[in-house]
Nucleic acid binder design. Structure first.
Lengths: 125, 125
DNA sequence: CAATTTGTTCTACACATTATAGAACAGTTT
DNA sequence: AAACTGTTCTATAATGTGTAGAACAAATTG
């Protein structure tokens, strides 16, 4: 799985990493039960600091996507159930973007089409 | 139009303001051609700093949503055409959220339904 | 015309975030 | 036993966020 970090981006490195790992799982590049590289190995591979990778892993754990086993590794954990908190977070994150698209003149049908095309790249579970 | 600022949020105040103004336009609370309050008046109203409101206005102008007329005011500008840059920005903002939702176990149909319900609150143009 | 209001620009300060770096620790794996 | 694991700590530099006050020139208002 290829990770691309843009140091010039205004998006923090640990967020870029978190998002690309999530997309990797959604695409099916990484399977449930797989382990992520150790924070040191991944950091060396990406050319970033160990603590930056560590922060990304903890973000993923907070989101409920991986399980960090102390002194062992980070394992992609199977999604059990969608909690209210998860639904609300998704809703509040998507809403401003939809509003912006509409205000900019994107038609509702085009937005539905955009969502569809994004989801087509990803594996259904 | 009611603006709610949460100072404890990890979302910057100027971003909260930007998003709520965009949602106000999308909902139809603010019409095209309307003026936004002056940065000083709005800041006093919201209980935040003038510069914070100013930053939000410039963010809105950068997005192509308002036109700031120097020494005059900020006017909601009609959406002319959707540029490639706009489409790409929307795509790159939505993609990680969709991926996250899928990984968390939200079904594709549920996501389409969520998008639909968000858009239902908003006025078609 | 005079006063007020407008966005703009500047300096300044406090605080939080981001990213890097190195060291040390205890538990796990090899 | 050696290597590797995540964790925790201190430290530093750069950047982002928010507030504050002052000044300016242009536009608006009375």
């Amino acid at each position: 799985m290829i990770i691309r970090i843009e140091t010039t981006s205004d998006v923090p490195i640990y967020t870029q990493l978190t998002n690309q790992i999530i997309e990797g799982i959604a695409r099916g590049d990484i399977q449930y039960g797989d382990s992520l590289p150790s924070v040191r190995a991944f950091a060396a591979d990406l050319g970033v600091n160990m603590h930056t990778v560590n922060k990304s892993y903890h973000e993923l754990e907070k989101k409920g996507i991986i399980k960090i086993v102390p002194k062992s590794g980070a394992i992609i954990s199977p999604s059990k159930q969608v909690t209210n908190e998860m639904n609300e977070r998704i809703h509040s994150e998507i809403k401003p973007i939809i509003a912006e698209a509409l205000v900019l003149g994107v038609k509702k049908e085009q937005i539905q089409q955009l969502i569809f095309s994004i989801m087509e790249e990803m594996k259904e579970r």
